[in-house]
Design a protein around this nucleic acid. Sequence first.
DNA 1: CGTGATCTTGAGGGAATTCAATGTCGGTGG
DNA 2: CCACCGACATTGAATTCCCTCAAGATCACG
Lengths: 223, 223
Amino acid sequence: MLIQTAVRRGSPQGRLPIEGQDDLGGPIDCMGALISHRRKEEIYGEGEPADYLYKVVSGTARTSKVLADGRRQIGGFYVAGDVFGLETGEEHSFSAEAISDCKLIVIKRSALVALAARNHDMARQLWAITSMELRRVEEHILLLIKSARERVATFLLEMAERIPTGNAVELPMSRQDIADYLGLTMETVSRNLTILENAATIELPSSRRIVLRNRSALNRLNA
Amino acid sequence: MLIQTAVRRGSPQGRLPIEGQDDLGGPIDCMGALISHRRKEEIYGEGEPADYLYKVVSGTARTSKVLADGRRQIGGFYVAGDVFGLETGEEHSFSAEAISDCKLIVIKRSALVALAARNHDMARQLWAITSMELRRVEEHILLLIKSARERVATFLLEMAERIPTGNAVELPMSRQDIADYLGLTMETVSRNLTILENAATIELPSSRRIVLRNRSALNRLNA
DNA sequence: CGTGATCTTGAGGGAATTCAATGTCGGTGG
DNA sequence: CCACCGACATTGAATTCCCTCAAGATCACG
């Protein structure tokens, strides 16, 4: 199947890139169809039936929610190996969009649920995915009570860990995306990146490329 | 963690849990021991083995996490019918404390997981509990990006919904607890309650008792 | 009644936002 | 090729909102 053409990232073992989800690869990867989304395309909308879940093969996606007055919160960013869109309810509580051109494996939820009813291991995996997501969102809450400086530092460390390319990180998302993820304004994110740059903690060769020069300084801000 | 002696085994027939979790009542209620915790007692600590999960019979509990510099985040409040402490990992990521004197049903996780391996319905329920918690935490994130006024208003509506006693709410938690839940200071919470009172949106017969006078005003702030 | 814990209120300061202007980059067409 | 354009990002100035610090007020309880 097409799934095998998934891009390989820098993991030496040649296994799935994201830690903790390796065991989910096999069964799930074999059940879905591979689809592509262009940059900025909507993958699903808030309130739509949650009939499918998605596993990122390449590219980056985000989930988001827009409040009545236009404020937007980004629930999370999803890179190769990540799963999103899994709900127990009937509807998606967030919408999802492609940040960069994306290849995704799409799996029908009902198929997984039916399989889980017979296969205990699959049931355990569905639970594990939800549970991991829960832990991620709990971490996100801790982020939102920190100062702007700390949020930005934590964000950089998180991204560096999830897109492991040494000390240089190629951010797939805009400043506005980062701001809406961190609960800040674009300007505040930008200012704090500049401050970190002036402190020689990071380098900004271009706006989307960030080099972590002093990780311990970032970790100190990670509180 | 304090080891409590079980007050009673099993559970009386016909207990009626709280809305939305009714279906979880039967199987789970029958599997655990009933224990009591006094006000302010720790139920479990962050990083401790997540060997048990808890269902509130009476009273209120909270989960919380303290950052290195002393800032505290409250993950959630749990009232009669709510389940907390369920993790897929080996350790609790938050600690849990009794806010008021509490009776809890304690269930061994390994027993549930073992049962889930044979009983698909139990597996589905474990997933449902985690999934509900995920949705709750996602809502919490939306709270944390709002203004102080909005957070307080949303909190009041949430509590009024979860402790359904008409328009009067008897809050089991302190202002500091509310503040740490909302990502604000105690003073800011207090000030905004006063403002809402002066606007005739709520009444404060005592600091812990709040009467919602104008729900639509609160809903308007709910954004 | 005191005493401590909890809550409210006030004044001042600071961090993040808002509004506005300038700067940078990648693409497109002259 | 480079000039221009739009999208995105940075920087500046003023303001707003929340926090900090401090002083009272209220409540529960011995």
